[in-house]
Amino acid sequence: MSEHEFMITMQDVNKWYGDFHVLKDVNLNIKKGEKLVICGPSGSGKSTTIRCLNHLEKFQEGKISINGTDLIEDVKVVRHIRSQVGMVFQHFNLFPHLSVLENLLLAPTWVHNKPRKEAIETAMYYLERVKIADQAHKYPNQLSGGQQQRVAIARCLCINPEIMLFDEPTSALDPEMVSEVLEVMVELAEEGITMICVTHEMGFAKKVADRVIFMDAGQIIEENEPHEFFDNPQSDRLKLFLDQILSH
């Protein structure tokens, strides 16, 4: 398969924070519509990996290409790539001074120059999709964590992205609210958007992922389709990790 048929390619990506080697020769090819789950202990570089994909982190060596565009240090290229990549954060990062609806309108009206009326229609459509349209005029801090995260997902969808990145989307939520967010993510996955998800929700990984990747110490240690990944881990490191997260 040639390079251009992949939605995302990472070739020998290396990254350092000062002298600390965070990403070591990360190679990853992701097809259009593929659902990838990345897991691993904290500090293993999984968040850093997906943050490199929309240039929230710079990398020093290697090559990343998104939907045929090489990611280089150029304002226009970076903006072009970001307009195709939506990112959902652990702490939601909604803009607290704007209402839910205004949060959703910001990128479409200012970055994609959509007329406001059209942007509102799109925003309301996605708010309905994440089942929160009745809260459109509230402020983020008036919503529960689960609701905020669903708004954050809708905010990304409003820019009509090719790729969605999820950076531990349920880790900051109360246990009661995890499922309402996962439900939205499952629905999204069924629609064929390319998804990369850093998460420890193993149920979600089994249900949705085409492929699961295990990272440790800045490297990809193991990758497999989900059932093999969980039922038949190969490396000792992954066996230990799975033991620890599944033991209770």
């Binding site: 990062n93 970055v111 820019i159």
Partner: peptide, 15 residues
């Protein structure tokens, strides 16, 4: 202002 606010606005493509 938390770092996340900068990151969210960047990741949405705002200049």
């Amino acid at each position: 202002i938390p770092r996340g606010q900068y990151e969210a606005s960047e990741s949405l493509g705002l200049s």
